[in-house]
Nucleic acid binder design. Sequence first.
DNA 1: TAGTTGACCGGAA
DNA 2: ATTCCGGCCAACT
Length: 84
Amino acid sequence: MKTFTEKVRAIVAKIPKGKSMTYKEVATKAGNPKAARAVGAIMRSNYNRDIPCHRVVKSDGSLGSYNRGGTLRKRELLKAEGTL
DNA sequence: TAGTTGACCGGAA
DNA sequence: ATTCCGGCCAACT
């Protein structure tokens, strides 16, 4: 049983190409359905190349936010991968 | 140890 | 449909 952060990182890293998960989904699979906020905070502090955080979106259907460009950058990344 | 912050969610006005 | 408010969790100071 690892920490919440490790679980979240592993789950996000397991997101297949062309697919997207919501922060809530990741939080739920990580063990805390209500930790969607924490997931975002973790991504913000732990965004690596092994962790496609841009594939993680909000439950409302919006993309959410992202580093270096925010939502706009995220949208471009998703479109470039085929997740869109 | 306690307080503040934030890439969120859901319900209400 | 949009805007406001409260709540939950982990990380940072």
